[in-house]
């Protein structure tokens, strides 16, 4: 909640695709083309070593990123241990590990604010 002289603007509950920053998803789609193959089956998340211990959902993070919602990625991605198990499970052959590394890379070097 941001307070503007007595008026409060609550965070939107919907994805505002028109105004969201799509630069990250465009970058990822370019450098990890296989990331576009995801059908959201959740296999990655089900077996995830980190997700087994904490609230870390790689399927959701990358789905949100694809809609320009990068907040989750920024906050959550550091929890990944890069063990690569997700890559071994993915029925679509998404290079999940590379996708995560590139997302981290993008957040560190290019994503402003």
């Amino acid at each position: 909640m941001i307070n503007f002289w007595g008026y409060s603007i609550s965070e939107t509950r919907s994805i505002n695709y028109d105004t969201n920053d799509k630069s990250m998803t465009e970058y990822i789609a370019r450098v990890v083309p296989s990331s576009k193959l995801c059908i959201g089956c959740g296999g990655c998340t089900a077996g995830c070593t980190a997700g087994n211990l904490t609230n870390f959902n790689i399927r959701k993070i990358q789905m949100l990123m694809k809609r320009g919602e990068n907040k989750e990625a920024k906050e959550q991605l550091q929890k990944c241990m890069l063990c690569g198990k997700c890559m071994l499970v993915c029925p679509r052959g998404v290079e999940t590990r590379k996708m995560i590394l590139e997302m981290l890379n993008y957040i560190k070097t290019k994503l402003k604010s």
Binding site: G47, T49, A50, L53, T54, Q78, K79, M81, C83, G84, K85, L88, V89
Partner: peptide, 27 residues
Amino acid sequence: KDTYAYVPQPEVKPAKVAYFAGCMSHL
């Protein structure tokens, strides 16, 4: 200090031989 802070304190039964299968072995 928050890096991987979610990993809980280990609860393991003590024994002479510790077997660590590894992430991949679970597949």
